[in-house]
């Protein structure tokens, strides 16, 4: 079947099998920033925004995204022109092995879209679905709060 959706602002039409997950479709289409961690909704490495909502792409049928707008970490910023959140993650060393970063950044972006001035608890809650196996939990909270305090999204 044909799937038409917008990925990072670009309209795409992709031939898919009805039973595939969005995660696999995105990676096959070249969006390798979307990571497969657990594949069962526990780790959040695969998080993307679907119509503004942060979701596990491993538990989302690609077919559910017909007509949707999907944002992956590739749509957030580039190495030359990083998103303020990416900048803050670098400044605070909120990245160790880096595997959880794409998902954590997407969850953080969703938080700041709706809550521009979050509290520590707000950030903790917003990132509760993004496991960091290097246990860099404090630095990423500081990074998100710093990005928010700069008044940027």
């Amino acid at each position: 079947m044909k799937l038409t959706l917008t990925i990072n602002g670009k309209l795409r039409s992709i031939e898919i099998a009805p039973n595939v997950m969005l995660l696999d479709v995105l990676r096959a289409a070249g969006y390798k920033g979307v990571k497969k961690g657990c594949g069962e909704g526990s780790c959040g490495a695969c998080a993307v925004l679907i119509d503004g909502r942060p979701r596990n792409s491993c538990l989302t049928f690609a077919a559910q995204c017909e007509g949707s707008e999907v944002l992956t970490v590739e749509g957030l910023g580039t190495p030359e022109n990083p998103h303020p959140l990416q900048d803050a993650f670098v400044r605070h060393g909120a990245t160790q092995c880096g595997y959880c970063n794409p998902g954590s950044l997407i969850a953080a972006k969703s938080l700041l879209d709706h809550t521009p001035a979050p509290t520590w608890e707000d950030v903790k809650e917003a990132l509760d679905g993004n496991l960091c196996r290097c246990t860099g939990y404090v630095k990423r909270i500081e990074a998100v709060l710093d990005a928010a305090s700069l008044g940027k999204k």
């Binding site: 909704g41 909502r53 942060p54 979701r55 596990n56 509760d128 679905g129």
Partner: peptide
């Protein structure tokens, strides 16, 4: 329920 990511789904 679960996590923020799951609660949105």
């Amino acid at each position: 329920i679960g996590s923020t990511l799951l609660r949105h789904a």
